[in-house]
Every structure is written in C-alpha cells, then in structure tokens.
Amino acid sequence: MTDQTKKFMLLMIGWFFVILGAIGLFLPVLPTTPFLLIALWAFSQSSERFHYWLYNHRTFGPPLQEWSKYGVIPLRAKIMAIATMTVSATLVISFSSTPWYGLAAMIILMLIGAGFILSRPSRRKEKDSA
C-alpha cells in the first residue's frame, strides 16, 4: 500500500468516526468520545490540519484534551457507558439464544471494559487544574 493510499484510508476512517461521534451527541446509546479518539488518532497519521481542527474544536476538543492530558473520563460518560453495557447484557441474556460460553465471554469483556472505565479519574486532580 502506498503512503498516499494509507493516508487517504486513514483520513476516511477519521471522518467516519467524527460522523459517528457527532451522531453520538444526539443519541445517548452512542459513545461520542471513544469515536472521536479513534478519529483523532487517524487524523494524527494522515492530516495535521484535521488533527489540529478536531483537537481544538469548540465542542469535540475539550473531552479529547482532558483524556489526552489527564486520562479523564467524565462521570456522565462513565454512567452512560456502564448503563449501556448493563442494558445490552440484560437484553442479550433475556432475548437471545446465545450459548452460555458466548454470554460468559460477553460479560467478561464488558466487565473488563467497565473496570477500565471506572479506573480512570472522573476529573483532573486539583494540582493539574492550575
């Protein structure tokens, strides 16, 4: 794959995830920030201009900067993520014929994700706020 093709593909990935992140602003079941983090990474590999634009965007920039600088996941985002995982797991367990090992794998992966989310700070430390 040529460098030009790679950059084009990463640019398209970036815009795809920006669009998903923007939709997530209006649909509470879509997590905005993780999609924007993927877009930011893709832009960092393909377009300095779009990377700068997204990182400094009036709406999208602040959560990306909080994550980048301090590893912060806001409390609201944590609640939404855990609630979405809980509802999803409940629906799959209640209404699907997934074998027990599939359900176990799903629950284990969700618990790992939830553990990571809950292990991150909800706001920056006081000494970092200055």
Rank of each mutant, 00 (worst) to 15 (best):
L40R: 01
G24D: 02
I82W: 00
F116R: 14
G14Q: 00
G24S: 08
Y101F: 15
T2M: 01
S122Q: 12
V29W: 14
G24A: 05
A42K: 05
G102P: 04
L11D: 08
S97V: 02
L25H: 12
R49G: 04
K127D: 14
G115S: 09
L25E: 14
L54M: 03
A105I: 11
A130M: 13
E66P: 05
F16E: 07
M9T: 03
G61E: 00
P63E: 01
T98P: 05
A39H: 08
I117C: 15
A22W: 11
K69G: 10
A89D: 09
Q65P: 05
L75D: 15
Y52G: 10
I23F: 06
S122D: 08
T32C: 08
P31A: 09
V18N: 02
A130S: 14
G24V: 10
G115Q: 06
F43Q: 00
N56D: 04
P99V: 00
Q4V: 10
T98D: 06
D128P: 03
K69Y: 12
D128T: 02
K125P: 00
K69T: 15
F95A: 12
L36S: 06
F16G: 11
K6A: 00
S46R: 02
L75T: 14
W15H: 07
Y101G: 04
G71K: 15
L103F: 05
F35N: 14
T90H: 10
T84Q: 03
A105G: 03
I107T: 12
Y70W: 10
L25R: 15
N56P: 07
Y101W: 15
Q4D: 10
A81Q: 06
Y52Q: 12
M80L: 15
T59W: 15
E126F: 13
M80I: 12
G113E: 08
F95Q: 04
I108L: 15
M12P: 04
W15M: 07
S96K: 13
Q4N: 08
A22M: 13
L118H: 03
V87F: 13
R124D: 02
R49K: 14
L91Q: 03
P34I: 07
T90C: 10
L11R: 03
I108D: 01
L11A: 04
F50D: 11
F35P: 03
E48H: 08
L75E: 15
L40C: 05
K69R: 14
Y70C: 05
F26R: 07
K125Y: 11
A83C: 13
G21I: 10
S119W: 09
Y55G: 04
P31Q: 12
Q65Y: 10
S94L: 15
E48V: 05
I79K: 08
W53M: 11
L91S: 09
M12L: 13
I117P: 04
H51G: 01
L20Y: 05
Q4G: 00
